[in-house]
Nucleic acid binder design. Structure first.
Lengths: 351, 351
DNA sequence: TTGTATGCGTTATCAC
DNA sequence: GTGATAACGCATACAA
């Protein structure tokens, strides 16, 4: 308070300031050595209550803030986790990242975010930037990362985990089983008597999760002897508008489907809106994935069935796993997280 | 390749690895001094092409990755920007952060993300964590930060900026004028002949942006001599479901409004869905804010009028401003970003 | 153009 | 319990 730096008058602050308060400054004021100050801050019980108070008071008075770079240099770790998140935007990744950040922060870790756009996504340089910043571990979203990424990671011996990915030979994964997710939905519809299914999903040439989702649906459809004709299968961008348009197209094609599965909640919402706009009642229209706080699809045009995808949970498990690894434990990540079917309303096909 | 560390067999990687490759290692292999290697990497044109190649080859061969902590310690800067992002509903947070991260990455800066939950949002400790990690500057989302935050920031003489905030005496801001935004909408409706307006917005006791938005609407309504009765004014959580419920409530109350303004796109979408479900036609139902990639409200139930809020632009300007400050320029942030009215369809009130 | 030496702020090792 | 002191890996002033 009294040692306030002459700085800043409300608007902004001067760039160059006297010099940051260091351990030495605190030590000088407290009349102890720098080493002691360091210990007070990291192993408080290693030093006497008397000096501890003295030091703490001095630190507080000077507004001391540790220099993480110096600490990182000495400790050879930064308490920072890097997240490599391709196409952060429109997807559910933000939710996942938030969950991970929370879990990390609770343990005193920071999250260094790298959200390369499509062009830079395959560029190993972005990982390099993370490594140069000294992240202790990294979380990779999705499994679509170039080999160079894994080479660097392995070469540096730094723990990493693939999120929203499974059965990758590239490294430990945390995700869920798309085939099970699809089976939950398709079985439900099949049990209700639906025979012809439509599917509106993401671009499979471009999005590995969309690809797996489609595979899961196709497998379940085959297993149940349902039909999913080529012209009832639409790939599109994710998003409400895309779902809207796709469903309109589907309707135009007159494919005879009685149920439509959608690759995610946004697509489902758009699709349902299109049905509503056209005044068409398609029993069993449903969404494959419902994102935690955006389950707006449910309000638009039931019947709707949803599989809740464990998005936040993936982020939380990632934090848990990575931290365990850093703690030296030889932990195994939970490869497959549980899924949950949420039936808003069902429409059975009779006859 | 040949100097590959014995590490990692696909699944994971050992925690303890020989030792990271350092400048000295590269120097040794290249047969030059560490200083030279450093210069090759930072000021390539300061040294001869011959040795440059030698050094580069050696670095590449060893898979050298600079140690950011050491660099930060020597340079007294980290090339890292901190973002303090109190969680708020809807999806504008990821969009803004993504835009900022991209702009930052393009300039070789990293983004350290801190997204405290509601409980921790007022805790200066989260800023402290960022400072300890050595961020060169910080972006604060919203203006709802405790004085302690600004004290620390000023005391450390570190550049910062408030995002999605205006006219704060606490520091430089980048945002837009809520009153102008509201005026765009309200004037449009007033011009169409609407007299009685309803408003569904976020919680004002809890969300400063929601508060300003409401104020803007009230001011515009007063200026145009419109009516916005107390029972036509609903505050709720952000989200589709909330908007849906709020509109149902509004309908039940029979307030006689002919237009409803919504605090954001999600609320608007929910509200429109409710209208659709109830089969009610409310001319001029509209949304105050439309988020860049989620303009799904438009598909649900026109007429709809929207003010596009410059979310990405705020992130980009933040990066630009902060980087300018760090470059020593005495830059001024663009306090107010331009707004844009988007009329999907209008319904005039006649008589 | 390049090598040498020093400092950056912290932690850890070793005395005391 | 506490004080010196040596790393930690890099950048840079100064020499050569």
């Amino acid at each position: 308070m009294s040692t306030r730096i002459p700085s800043a008058s409300g608007n902004g602050a001067p760039l160059a300031v006297a010099r940051a308060v260091s351990l030495a400054d605190v030590a000088a004021l407290a009349g102890v050595s720098a080493g002691t100050v360091s210990r007070v801050l990291s192993r408080p019980d290693m030093i006497s209550p008397a000096t501890r108070q003295k030091v703490l008071a001095a630190a507080d008075r000077l507004g001391y803030v540790a220099n993480g770079a110096a600490r990182a240099l000495a400790l050879r770790k930064t308490q920072t986790i890097g997240a490599l998140v391709p196409r952060f935007g429109g997807s559910s990744f933000p939710t996942l990242v938030q969950a991970m950040e929370s879990a990390l922060a609770a343990q005193g870790y920071n999250l260094l975010l790298s959200a390369p756009d499509h062009a830079r996504a395959q560029d190993p340089t972005v990982l390099r930037a993370l490594l140069e910043r000294g992240v202790d571990a990294v979380a990779l979203l999705g499994a679509e990362h170039p080999p160079a990424v894994f080479n660097m990671l392995n070469q540096h011996g730094i723990p990493y985990v693939l999120l929203w990915a499974v059965s990758s030979t590239q490294g430990p994964c945390i995700g869920f089983d798309e085939h099970v997710a699809a089976a939950l939905l398709v079985d439900h519809l099949a049990d209700l008597g639906h025979r012809r299914l439509g599917f509106i999903g993401g671009r499979t040439d471009d999005n590995e999760r969309a690809r797996r989702r489609l595979q899961g649906v196709l497998a379940a459809v085959a297993r149940r002897g349902m039909m999913l004709s080529q012209d009832a299968l639409l790939e599109t961008e994710y998003g409400f508008a895309s779902g809207f348009e796709a469903m309109k197209t589907l309707i135009t094609r007159n494919t005879g489907v009685t149920a439509v599965a959608c690759g995610n909640d946004y697509l489902a919402a758009g699709a349902l809106a299109a049905l509503s706009a056209e005044g068409i009642e398609v029993p069993g229209a449903m969404s494959v994935a419902s994102f935690n706080d955006n389950d707006f699809a449910a309000y638009l045009h039931p019947p709707l069935t949803t599989v809740r995808v464990p998005i936040r949970e993936i982020g939380e498990e990632a934090a848990r796993y990575l931290l365990a690894r850093l703690a030296g434990e030889d932990a195994e990540p939970p490869v497959l997280l549980p899924l949950e079917l949420k039936v808003r309303r069902s429409t059975a096909i009779v006859g």
